[in-house]
Nucleic acid binder design. Sequence first.
DNA 1: TCTGAAACCACTTAACT
DNA 2: AGTTAAGTGGTTTCAGA
Lengths: 148, 148
Amino acid sequence: MDDIDKKILKRLQENARVTISVLSSEISLSMPAISERLKKLEASGVIKQYTAILNPELVDKQLMALVYLSFDNPSHGDSFKNFVVGESDIKECFYITGDFDYSLKIITQNTTTLENLLTRIKEQTGVIKTQTIVVLSSIIDRPSVTIE
Amino acid sequence: MDDIDKKILKRLQENARVTISVLSSEISLSMPAISERLKKLEASGVIKQYTAILNPELVDKQLMALVYLSFDNPSHGDSFKNFVVGESDIKECFYITGDFDYSLKIITQNTTTLENLLTRIKEQTGVIKTQTIVVLSSIIDRPSVTIE
DNA sequence: TCTGAAACCACTTAACT
DNA sequence: AGTTAAGTGGTTTCAGA
């Protein structure tokens, strides 16, 4: 991956719908050259996905919460993974160091939907401790990996 | 926003580079109709951004950490905001309920770059307490808001 | 707000450096 | 790995419903 690839990636991060012709004129490389590089970046897995970031307030998901939880023993990892994959309001699930085993980021409609989701989480086999933090406001929220 | 708009949004979330002609045939609506709806969704702010999600391992950012911190009093919010905006390895910054004031999600190269960033964080005026959790593995990591 | 046709522009292919 | 040029296909505009 050279500087031209990085320019392409940076521009796609800013706007994933930028056209090849715009990239071509900005980077001063022909369209077929840009197109080939892009195909390679996609095929090699450097670009995992192109996605649209939506405004939470306009799609009725106004409550963000962070949930930490511990298991009585490590053997429940697989069934817990299946559970979180199926819960679309769980946006992040990390296996972490420290007092808890997992951290979850939840984006949901309101306190009622959060309560229902927390109930389902606590029903998972092996869960022995949870802690819930409500997010009051989001100062920044950027895509995970960025090219500078 | 009706069901057709939701289909468009859902498809753009899965793949932000999907063409209008593909949307047109999938949704059974003419290309000009799709194009107009898309322009309205962009102009009204429902779609905040189109972005490319990159593979962290392939762009040399292999360490994720969660940092929690407290201030001695609430007056340092503005300068802290300026600081986090300028730190590109800080991907999320939330003002939260609970023992700490802010939570940060950091994605960086290695323990050395994490250490340097933590030093800069602790140098911010008013910071009195921090706690750092290292992420061992990511079970799921989805874009924040999704249409189902 | 939608459709269909035409004009315009972007993308891909192919031949070649 | 790159270019140019031709051909293909996607997007926008516009007239009309």
